[in-house]
């Protein structure tokens, strides 16, 4: 279901818990689907002994993908014209993430109503792990 410009206001927001207790297996699953087999995400021995991290960590793109689910659930399927993020902190196994979209602007471009969203995904300690923006087409 798409959003209507007439029913939307700047400051409106929508949020979802996008993962509860992220598992190493889901990170492996994302590696397989995306094709990004960087061992920092899946290989405990490599990541602790060679790369020097405490354990494996999620692909930024997994967090962006899970956050994208919240965005498309809000704006509707096939409605995005832009989605961009910055990865602000690492995501670790065991993390629980909540993604939030807030309406920053509702505008008109060549007769098409658009919404600009500000996106923030935070972990269980309220630390932002991803910040970004999205733009989607609205119904009138």
């Amino acid at each position: 279901m798409a959003l209507s410009a007439s029913q939307l206001n700047v400051g409106d927001s929508y949020s979802e818990q996008i993962v509860d207790d992220l598992t190493r297996t889901q990170i492996v699953q994302y590696a397989g689907a995306s094709g990004d087999y960087n061992p920092v995400h899946t290989d405990e021995k490599f990541v602790t002994e060679v790369a020097g991290y405490p354990t494996v960590f999620a692909h930024g793109m997994l967090t962006m993908g899970m956050t994208g689910r919240m965005v498309t659930n809000y704006v509707g399927d096939g409605r995005l014209t832009y989605y961009g993020v910055r990865f602000t902190s690492q995501v670790w196994p065991g993390d629980t993430l909540t993604a939030k979209a807030e309406v920053a602007d509702i505008r008109d471009e060549d007769g098409q109503k658009l919404v600009d969203l500000t996106i923030t995904t935070t972990n269980q300690d309220d630390r932002p792990v991803l910040t970004g923006q999205a733009t989607a087409r609205l119904d009138d």
Binding site: V19, Q26, Q29, Y30, G32, A33, R69, T72, D77
Partner: peptide, 15 residues
């Protein structure tokens, strides 16, 4: 591939 990718990000949307 789309199905596997959607599963990996936990998205069960039938679209």
């Amino acid at each position: 591939h789309i199905l596997m990718f959607a599963r990996s990000i936990g998205d069960t949307n039938p679209i």
